[in-house]
Design a binder for these strands. Structure first.
Length: 475
RNA sequence: CGGGAUGUAGCGUAGCUUGGUAUCGCGUCUCAUUUGGGAUGAGAAGGUCGCAGGUUCAAAUCCUGUCAUCCCGACCA
């Protein structure tokens, strides 16, 4: 029997409610008593740890070093780069008192740490020999948001922020593109999410940046989710912060800078892109539990022993495995681990033991098969890559089906109503972006790389257009 | 920040119009029987009704404020 409080809202019925239900019932998070500050529960945090492990390794492969900067930024420091201040001031949480004393120089709880990195870089970069610098920190930041949703938009969220300095603008721009490539590989190889990669319009770029690149994911409700950004700053900040070094020719120069980050918003992408009416569906690479073993008739002598034996075997092979020997019925456990999105379920009962087999079930398709005991390890391993491919392909097909070429405002509207990206030729004028936002609440997500021109007229103003841009409603 | 809705046990709820110290289901705990898709029976524990004021002999219920959550806008990553 299905109980109302054990099940989740169907996606079709109310997608937003479905999302909230999954977040809570899969035990990814809980609310705290302060708006927008959530508790990352062990199961949710463990997914983040898998993402961290992958990225941290990739970062270090290209020479990035981890550091940790202070939580607070003096107002006087924060105010040094004008555009940056204007971009972030409205959403800063500010500490005005320390102990009994009112602070003269207020302390901003970091919404991002460009200014802190710049101040530090100004002290340690003296010579071209000190370059490049590629620092990263894993931390949380605070932005005083008006509307909050678990993982998608929080007052506090976890992220990594990389900040680099290079001698030349070309090196810095290459860095921004290289890091975007790493983010893209995270989607492709780890999260099974096909991102659209591209450059942001001037209107949408980061406060203080010369160029912003992003990876955009498409959600099943047709809205786009910016899932990571990299920024090329030129040397604007380094001039504002007095970062100077003596170049190879002996002159004083300002280095060129980038920053780049992804956040726990990625958990929101994973939940929505892959989830279904039974709950989470996790890609094997980030699943905190990759295989759950469900013993059937576990009180029958030998069943639990066999289950433990399989658990040890899988664990030794480096697979994240859990044996659930609680008193719940097998049916309850099936539903529970489906809710939690565990990619592979292994069932073992007296019948199986007699036949020296187990049943393996895939979460993403529900498909079950019986395999010989001796083939468990190889089958599980191949199931992981099979599941990853299927999940990626499914998301990719959805992306293709919801990317619509449009040649007029009417077609643009139709594409947005259908959900997904409206792919359009654009003249480059911000007025056209503003008009689309005003009419349809959609924004330019990015100018994707690798897109061929398919016309030469901007459907908004009718002027000459040579850029391909993706518009969508966004989270 | 505007408009709307909602806060009663871990979860979902009844009660509020018409004031009298809280209903039911799930879950939890104990025991027994069970176990291949959310088991059954018996017994038990668990709530200062989001928080703070006010009205009243008496407030979950009426009034004011405030906090949080959800939805729709605006804004922003």
């Amino acid at each position: 029997m299905e109980n109302k409080n054990d099940s989740i809202t169907r996606q079709e019925e109310d997608f937003a409610q479905w999302y909230t239900d999954v977040c809570r019932k899969a035990e990814l998070m809980d609310y705290s008593s302060v708006k927008g500050f959530i508790i990352y529960r062990p199961y949710g945090y463990a997914i983040w740890e898998q993402i961290q492990a992958y990225l941290d390794h990739e970062f270090k492969e290209v020479g990035v070093e981890n550091v940790y900067m202070p939580l607070v930024i003096p107002q006087s420091l924060f105010d040094r780069e004008k555009e940056h201040v204007e971009g972030f001031a409205p959403e800063c949480l500010v500490a005005t008192q320390g102990g009994p004393n009112v602070l003269d120089d207020k302390l901003i709880i970091r919404p991002t740490s460009e200014t802190l990195f710049c101040e530090h870089y100004a002290k340690i970069i003296k010579s071209y020999r000190d370059l490049p610098k590629q620092y990263n920190q894993w931390c949380s930041v605070v932005r005083w948001e008006k509307t909050t949703r678990p993982f998608l938009r929080g007052s506090e969220f976890l992220w990594q922020e990389g900040h680099t300095m290079y001698e030349t603008s070309e090196e810095a721009r290459q860095d921004a593109l290289r890091m975007l490539e790493i983010y893209d590989s995270l989607g492709r190889d780890v999260l099974a999410i096909p991102f659209v990669k591209g450059i942001k319009t001037d209107k949408e770029k980061f406060a203080g940046a010369e160029e912003t690149y992003s990876i955009e994911a498409l959600m099943p409700d047709g809205k786009a989710l910016q899932s990571g950004t990299t920024h090329y700053f030129g040397n604007g900040f380094s001039r504002a912060f007095g970062i100077q070094y003596q170049s190879r020719s002996g002159k004083l120069e300002n280095p060129y800078q980038t920053s780049w980050g992804v956040s726990t918003r990625l958990l929101g992408s994973i939940i929505m892109v892959h989830g279904d009416d039974n709950g989470l569906v996790l890609p094997p690479k980030v699943a905190p539990i990759q295989v759950v073993i469900i013993p059937v008739a576990q009180k029958v002598p030998g069943v639990l022993d066999k289950a433990r034996e399989y658990k040890e075997m899988l664990k030794k092979a480096g697979i994240r495995v859990k044996l659930d020997d609680s008193d719940h019925t097998p049916g309850w456990k099936y539903a529970e681990y489906e809710m939690k999105g565990v990619p592979v379920r292994l069932e073992v009962g007296p019948r199986d033991i007699e036949n020296k087999v187990v049943v393996l079930a895939k979460r993403n398709t529900g498909e079950k098969k019986t395999v010989n005991e001796s083939d468990i390890l190889t089958t599980v391993t191949s199931l992981f890559s099979e599941i990853h491919k299927e999940m990626y392909q499914k998301a990719f097909n959805y992306l293709l089906e919801h990317t619509t070429e449009v040649h007029s405002l009417d077609e643009l509207k139709a594409a947005l109503d259908k959900g997904g990206y409206a792919k359009m030729m654009w003249c480059g004028d911000e007025a056209c972006e503003n008009k689309i936002k005003e009419l349809y609440q959609a924004t330019a997500r990015c100018l994707p790389f690798d897109e061929m021109s398919f016309g030469d007229t901007c459907p908004v103003c009718g002027k000459k257009a040579d850029k391909v841009v993706f518009f969508a409603k966004a989270y």
